[in-house]
Simulated scan of single mutants.
Amino acid sequence: MPGPKSGSGRRFNGASRADGIIAGRAGGSWQRGYTLIEVLVAFAVLALALTLLLGTLSGASRQVRWSADAGRAALHAESLLAQTGVGEVLQPGRRDGEFEAGRYRWTLEVAPYQDPARPSPATVDPFAPRLLQLRLLVTWGDGGPRENLVVDSLRLVPQDLTQGVVP
């Protein structure tokens, strides 16, 4: 029983394999392979997958860098707060400086702590120690919006009798 004829007058018997490749016999020879469209679609899918993978890896490396920078900023802040008030009398005011040749900049503000539940100043013992609030701001980053870390702390300091009573 003869098969269907192609436009060129040659016989074509098509057979389908389990892997999706169509094999056919035209003019006595077997032809196997992928069409140009199938190859182009495969390359497009591969390019899309690689683009997504590289985007994910780029985002992950950016997060690792930010995490390392934030960790170093936290270590610098902890170190600076540990040294504050050691060997010197802690006084209200503002100081600033930098770490690692300017990569990290810091500002320390020291002010008397105002407790909303604190009794009126007339009932406070003038010789009692006082609380000071420390606010440390550490900033870093290249251009654009900078990253920052804010650390608040309280310190109990003795009353400075040479400068009078501070409420």
Rank of each mutant, 00 (worst) to 15 (best):
M1W: 09
M1S: 15
P2T: 10
P2F: 08
P2W: 11
G3C: 13
G3A: 15
G3D: 13
G7R: 12
S8A: 15
G9Q: 01
G9T: 11
G9R: 03
G9H: 11
R10S: 15
R10I: 14
R11W: 15
N13P: 06
N13H: 09
R17H: 15
R17C: 13
R17S: 15
D19A: 01
G20Q: 07
G20T: 02
I21R: 06
I21Q: 09
I21Y: 06
I22R: 11
A23I: 13
G24T: 14
R25D: 05
R25P: 05
G27P: 07
G27M: 08
G27N: 10
G28Q: 02
S29R: 14
Q31L: 10
Q31G: 10
G33A: 04
G33H: 05
T35F: 15
T35S: 10
L36K: 06
V39K: 02
L40M: 08
V41A: 06
V41R: 00
A42K: 00
L46A: 05
L46F: 09
A47P: 01
A47E: 09
L48T: 05
L48S: 12
L50M: 08
T51N: 00
T56V: 06
T56H: 03
T56R: 01
T56Q: 00
G59K: 00
G59Q: 03
A60C: 05
S61D: 03
S61R: 03
S61L: 06
R62C: 07
V64W: 00
V64K: 12
W66A: 15
W66H: 14
W66P: 07
A68D: 14
A68N: 09
D69F: 12
A73S: 10
A73R: 04
A73N: 02
A74L: 13
A74R: 15
L75E: 13
L75P: 03
H76Y: 08
A77W: 01
A77T: 04
E78R: 11
S79L: 05
L80V: 11
Q83V: 10
T84C: 07
G85P: 00
E88T: 13
E88Y: 11
V89C: 11
L90A: 09
Q91H: 06
R94P: 08
R95I: 07
D96M: 13
G97Y: 08
E98D: 07
E98P: 05
E100N: 08
E100F: 10
G102M: 03
R103E: 09
W106Q: 02
L108Y: 03
A111P: 03
P112C: 03
P112L: 05
D115H: 02
P116N: 05
A117W: 12
A117F: 02
R118S: 06
P119S: 14
P121K: 04
P121C: 10
A122K: 06
T123R: 10
V124N: 14
V124E: 14
V124T: 15
P126Q: 12
P126T: 07
P129D: 04
L131N: 06
L131G: 11
L132N: 02
Q133I: 11
L134R: 01
L136Y: 01
L137Q: 03
P145D: 13
P145Y: 01
E147L: 11
E147A: 07
V150G: 01
V150P: 04
V151L: 08
V151K: 00
V151Y: 01
D152S: 03
S153Y: 08
R155Q: 01
P158H: 04
Q159A: 13
Q159G: 06
T162H: 11
V165T: 10
V165I: 14
P167D: 13
